[in-house]
Design a protein around this nucleic acid. Structure first.
Length: 519
DNA sequence: GCCGCGTTGAATAA
DNA sequence: TTATTCAACGCGGC
């Protein structure tokens, strides 16, 4: 009798550059490719329809790709530890492979699964693959701590060199034990579920409106299409791209990389090959730089305790943000695109309908919610982004909210985005606003960023009365922005005093690289 | 302790 | 278009 292996798909919803999958199939005669929808991880109410729809479409595409090489995907629902335990026992699984993860919840889960395989005496292949490098290796290379500045991270990258080359997808896979698998007390969907199969989320399929097409094939296609534009690749500078462009001015690869449909190593080496012998922009603004930002965010998320909150987070400035019901009322207006600032509302409308917006557009609205205008805790804004984004990514999202709220990494709180001025630089006519806040579409260009300044006659002619059909601005930007800057100064001064009061215990730094030396 | 720097500010001056 | 100023920064190298 041959050996049955189970490959548990985590983030890496792909066949190319999938090391744990390759390990699993090396010694087995039958393979169970399994995805587990964990409703603790994807909590109903916390996950929006575009994010979930994109996940399901990614699974559907994965199933199609698996079927093309003699296999298929099984989708179960429940707690991964329970599900995998039951599968091992009932199906006499001999080996379990999966991609290790850096997020706190998933790290704990990794440990549980590893223990489970030990208890049941099953071979296990928990391997890194969602990042370019093994994060434990990078930490060891950096004496145990994650670098907190891009400059120091780039130093670490130059020590680490190129990440491993991506490995090819398998040409065929061992067949599953049966087309219709059952497992006692485990809920297994018939095929890949659709949005309406997930009744506990109460989605209305009509609201699934993102334009992104999911899947590994599509991710690779989009990447290749971008890489073919050599000039665009070699001159790419992130801060110079246009947040108000009606078609993405960046690669828009983030949903594929986040879902693991596209390997970050594949993109890295694709860039390297494309730019061979060419002059090109440099990190951190270049495309390679964007991969480094991602890698840095993952390493920090992996090693900093309580990285998803302010309290107990050693790198996070302690700032007396609004929380609770006061914050919730402001947050709701922000989330629903009802702030009265057309630029902010356009971005939030794009978030809810498309599940994606340009990086600088995220900056504008994140600054507005926190240190710029509303003084609402970044944790709540983070949750809203995480709910709606098709590229929702725990590490990058938390990293960016630290940055924008001046809680860590970036500290020049006096540099504040203006909800009126910022988009005028790239979109003086307000075309982006006219698209995403259609009720304002008739306003003359000169009023599009400040419609409340339009004379009553013009408001009537545009069939949009400010304060009735579209809200008045919820704050006076100039005023609150100044007030918040002094609040920030106060919070920074307080934290300085506290820091000097109790010097941090000297940490013993140790370079523990020996276990990574292969030759 | 000083100084230069930091992926992506705004307003103003030249 | 580019440089300077704006009250307001921390980090890290020296």
């Amino acid at each position: 009798m041959g050996k049955i292996a189970l490959h548990w798909f985590r983030h890496g919803l792909r066949l190319h550059d999938n090391t744990p999958l390759q390990k699993a199939i090396a010694g087995c005669t039958s393979l169970i490719p399994l995805y587990i929808l964990d409703t603790e991880y994807f909590k109903p109410g916390k996950v929006g329809i575009n994010r979930m729809g994109f996940l399901l479409d990614s699974l559907k595409a994965l199933d199609t790709d698996l079927r093309a090489i003699g296999s298929r995907l099984y989708v179960a629902k429940g707690d991964p530890e329970e599900v995998i335990g039951k599968f091992i026992k009932e199906h006499k699984i001999g080996a379990v492979s999966f991609e290790r993860d850096t997020e706190p919840y998933n790290k704990v889960m990794d440990g549980k699964i590893i223990n489970l395989t030990k208890e049941l005496n099953v071979e296990a292949f928990p391997l890194w693959g969602h990042t370019m490098f093994d994060p434990e290796y990078l930490l060891a290379l950096n004496n145990g701590d994650a670098p907190l500045t891009m400059t120091s991270f780039l130093r670490l990258m130059s020590e680490a060199g190129d990440p491993p080359k991506p490995i090819d997808p398998p040409k065929s896979l061992p067949p599953p034990p049966a087309d219709s698998l059952v497992c006692k007390d485990v809920f297994i969907f018939q095929g890949v579920p659709t949005l309406s199969d997930l009744t506990e989320y109460e989605f209305n399929p009509k609201d699934y409106t993102t334009w992104f097409v999911a899947g590994e094939k599509e991710g690779i296609r989009v990447m290749n299409e971008f890489l073919a534009q050599k000039r665009r690749v070699s001159t790419f500078e992130k801060p110079k791209t246009d947040p108000t462009a009606l078609q993405p001015d960046t690669t828009a690869l983030s949903p594929y990389i986040t879902r693991g449909s596209l390997s970050s190593r594949t993109f890295y080496h694709g860039l390297k090959d494309t730019l061979k012998g060419m002059k090109s922009s440099k990190p951190p603004v270049s495309l390679k730089g964007q991969l480094y930002w991602r890698e840095m965010a993952y390493l920090i998320g992996f090693s900093v305790p309580n990285f998803n909150q302010m309290e107990g987070n050693p790198i996070c400035k302690q700032i007396p943000w609004l929380t609770g019901d006061d914050a919730k009322a402001l947050l709701d207006k922000w989330e629903m695109g009802q702030t009265g600032f057309p630029a902010v509302d356009a971005v939030m409308n794009q978030l809810r309908t498309e599940g994606w917006m340009h990086h600088l557009a995220r900056h504008l609205v994140a600054c507005f919610l926190t240190r710029g205008d509303l003084w609402v805790t970044w944790e709540l804004g983070r949750d809203v982004f995480e709910k709606h984004l098709v590229d929702a990514d725990w590490s990058i999202n938390n990293f960016s909210w630290h940055w924008l709220s001046c809680s860590a990494f970036f500290h020049q709180y006096f540099r504040c985005y203006s909800p009126i001025a910022f988009f005028k630089k790239t979109d003086p006519n307000g075309n982006y606003i006219k698209k995403h806040v259609p009720i304002l579409a008739k306003f003359p260009d000169k009023y599009i960023y400040e419609p409340w300044t339009a004379p009553k006659g013009i408001q009537i002619a545009c069939a949009c009365i400010i304060g009735k059909d579209y809200p008045k601005p919820m704050v006076e930007h100039q005023f609150v922005c100044q007030e918040n800057k002094s609040r920030m100064k106060k919070a920074y001064d307080t934290s300085k005093k506290r820091d000097s009061g109790e010097p941090p215990a000297k940490k013993l730094k140790q370079n523990n690289l020996s276990k990574y030396r292969t030759k």
